[in-house]
Measured scan of single mutants.
Amino acid sequence: ETFPLDVLVNTAAEDLPRGVDPSRKENFLSDEDFKAVFGMTRSAFANLPLWKQQNLKKEKGLF
């Protein structure tokens, strides 16, 4: 299941849709939104070091 970017960005855990893991908001973006937000594919993002993934998520309001 995916959700629009505005539902996930800068949203407190208690305000997220049911079933969304607040530590993994990026997994609930569509592939198109994911690429638009991070400028890379999911596989490229997954290959980044964890610290870099976290920094990007913070920068984009998805942490």
Rank of each mutant, 00 (worst) to 15 (best):
T2S: 09
T2I: 10
T2M: 09
T2H: 10
F3W: 15
F3T: 03
F3L: 12
P4V: 03
P4F: 03
P4D: 07
P4L: 05
P4K: 03
P4Q: 06
P4N: 06
P4C: 07
P4E: 06
L5F: 10
L5W: 08
L5Q: 05
D6L: 09
D6C: 13
D6V: 09
V7M: 14
L8H: 04
L8A: 04
L8T: 04
V9M: 12
V9W: 05
V9G: 04
N10I: 07
N10S: 08
N10D: 08
N10C: 14
T11V: 14
T11M: 12
T11W: 10
T11N: 08
A12K: 14
A13I: 13
A13C: 15
A13G: 08
A13V: 14
A13S: 12
A13Q: 10
A13K: 10
E14T: 09
E14C: 13
E14R: 10
D15I: 06
D15V: 07
D15E: 10
L16C: 07
L16F: 07
P17N: 05
P17H: 04
P17T: 04
P17E: 04
R18Y: 11
R18K: 15
R18P: 15
R18F: 14
R18E: 15
G19D: 07
G19E: 11
G19I: 11
G19H: 09
V20M: 06
V20I: 10
D21A: 03
D21R: 03
D21Y: 03
D21M: 04
D21E: 06
D21L: 04
D21N: 08
D21V: 05
P22M: 05
S23T: 14
S23N: 14
S23I: 09
R24A: 10
R24M: 11
R24L: 09
K25E: 04
K25Y: 05
K25I: 15
E26N: 02
E26F: 05
E26D: 04
N27I: 10
N27M: 15
N27A: 14
N27F: 10
N27K: 15
F28V: 04
L29W: 04
L29F: 03
L29A: 01
S30V: 02
D31I: 06
E32Y: 10
E32R: 09
D33V: 08
D33P: 00
D33F: 02
D33C: 06
D33T: 07
F34Q: 00
K35P: 01
K35W: 15
K35D: 12
K35S: 12
A36H: 12
A36Y: 13
A36T: 12
A36M: 14
V37D: 00
V37G: 00
V37H: 05
V37R: 01
F38C: 01
G39A: 09
G39E: 09
M40H: 01
M40S: 00
T41A: 09
T41I: 08
T41V: 07
T41R: 03
R42T: 01
R42D: 00
R42S: 02
S43M: 14
S43I: 13
S43K: 13
S43N: 11
S43F: 13
A44P: 00
F45H: 00
F45E: 00
F45G: 00
A46W: 10
N47Y: 08
N47S: 14
N47A: 14
N47P: 00
L48T: 01
L48A: 01
L48N: 00
L48I: 04
P49G: 02
P49S: 07
P49V: 02
L50K: 10
W51V: 10
W51T: 09
W51F: 09
K52R: 13
K52T: 12
K52M: 14
K52E: 14
Q53V: 01
Q53W: 00
Q53C: 01
Q53Y: 01
Q53L: 01
Q54M: 14
N55L: 14
N55M: 14
N55G: 11
N55E: 15
N55Y: 13
L56T: 02
L56K: 05
L56I: 10
K57C: 08
K57T: 02
K57N: 02
K57R: 09
K57F: 06
K58D: 06
K58P: 00
E59R: 09
E59D: 10
K60W: 04
K60H: 12
K60S: 07
G61C: 09
G61N: 06
G61D: 05
G61V: 01
G61R: 03
L62H: 03
L62I: 08
F63Y: 14
F63T: 13
F63P: 05
F63A: 15
F63K: 06
